[in-house]
């Protein structure tokens, strides 16, 4: 596989605030690349640089082997699709008008545009009236149409910034099926999300914290390598809950009404057994993230 995105020592500063600090990674062609991190971690900022919307303060960026150079963003812009975090479509325009608008901004040939539009709408299985005003569409459909808009000019890579935020679970699932289909067609997907179940679908995951890249690997490797000791699921059997001495644990994280924990010393399990049901578990991605993000701050 060859490289689609190559980011080298990227810094983005706003005044004296550094939003992205020394971030380097590559995204391979045909990959689903998940970009994760808490709010304010610098995900959107990084994406904006990669789409040519924001100048890097330092570092180099290559998209499809083409270096992104200030003043020459338009070449890059024709290669990438972008679905921004907040905005998807103009609410007061119809589906067709939104698509027409995007196509004319990109100087698309009319016949080509019509063909791509038909293909994309088939792709998402949308066969309703295109004169429908966007305002009246359910969020899930809106996001799918927005995805089509970002794909109209047949970019090699699409950047999806939290495309499923606020979308109902069924529709989220549908959306991810589309993402997988796109990758199967050879597109490269760069996606941010808050949902851990979605992150499982990514080929590789980059984890950002306060502007820094703190982990980058496949979900399986992350789960395997993050915890060096056994992880336990503890569910309280007493009410009120009697909390054990925190010094017994390396990790102690609330998980709904239960807890995920790693003992300093597994022989201490018997002490806690009086008040909790204890089960061995293998870590989920969520455990991994909590561990990576919070673990390092302690």
């Amino acid at each position: 596989m060859s490289t689609m995105v190559d980011v080298r020592h990227l810094f983005v500063r706003f005044g004296d605030f550094t939003a992205v600090r020394d971030v380097s990674f590559t995204v391979e062609k045909g990959e689903i690349f998940g970009f994760l991190g808490a709010n304010g971690a610098g995900k959107t900022t990084t994406i904006r640089v990669l789409c040519g919307l924001l100048l890097a303060s330092e570092g180099r960026v290559f998209i499809d082997n083409e270096e992104l150079i200030a003043g020459h963003e338009s070449l890059i812009k024709s290669k990438v699709g972008y679905m921004s975090q907040h905005f998807t479509l103009y609410d007061d325009l119809s589906i067709r008008e939104n698509m027409d608008f995007a196509a004319s901004l990109r100087h698309m040939n009319h016949a080509e545009y019509l063909k791509n539009r038909r293909d994309l709408l088939d792709f998402i299985g949308f066969n309703e009236d295109l004169t429908k005003v966007v305002r009246d569409l359910p969020t899930g459909i809106k996001q799918e149409i927005a995805l089509c808009v970002s794909l109209l000019h047949q970019p090699k890579i699409v950047f999806l910034d939290e495309p499923t935020a606020g979308v109902a679970p069924v529709a989220r699932h549908r959306f991810w099926e589309l993402i997988k289909k796109l990758v199967a067609q050879g597109k490269t997907i760069f996606v941010t999300t808050h949902y851990m179940d979605e992150a499982e679908n990514c080929g590789r995951i980059a984890l950002m914290r306060s502007g820094e890249l703190i982990a980058l690997d496949s979900p399986a490797n992350l789960k395997q390598n993050t915890f060096h000791k056994q992880l336990y699921h503890l569910s309280p059997i007493t009410t009120p809950v009697i909390l054990p001495d925190r010094n017994l644990f390396d990790i102690w994280e609330p998980y709904g009404q239960n807890y995920h924990a790693v003992f300093k010393n597994d022989t201490d399990i018997s002490i806690v057994r009086k008040h909790f049901n204890i089960q061995k578990i293998s870590p989920s991605l969520e455990d991994v993230f909590i561990q990576l993000v919070e673990g390092q701050t302690r």
Binding site: R48, C51, G52, L53, S74, K77, S78, V80, Y82, S84, Q85, H86, F87, Y90, A102, L105, R106, H107
Partner: peptide, 13 residues
């Protein structure tokens, strides 16, 4: 505010 400016700017406009 809606972020549509970003979308406009992500095109060659």
């Amino acid at each position: 505010e809606t972020g549509s400016m970003e979308m406009l700017l992500s095109t060659p406009a």
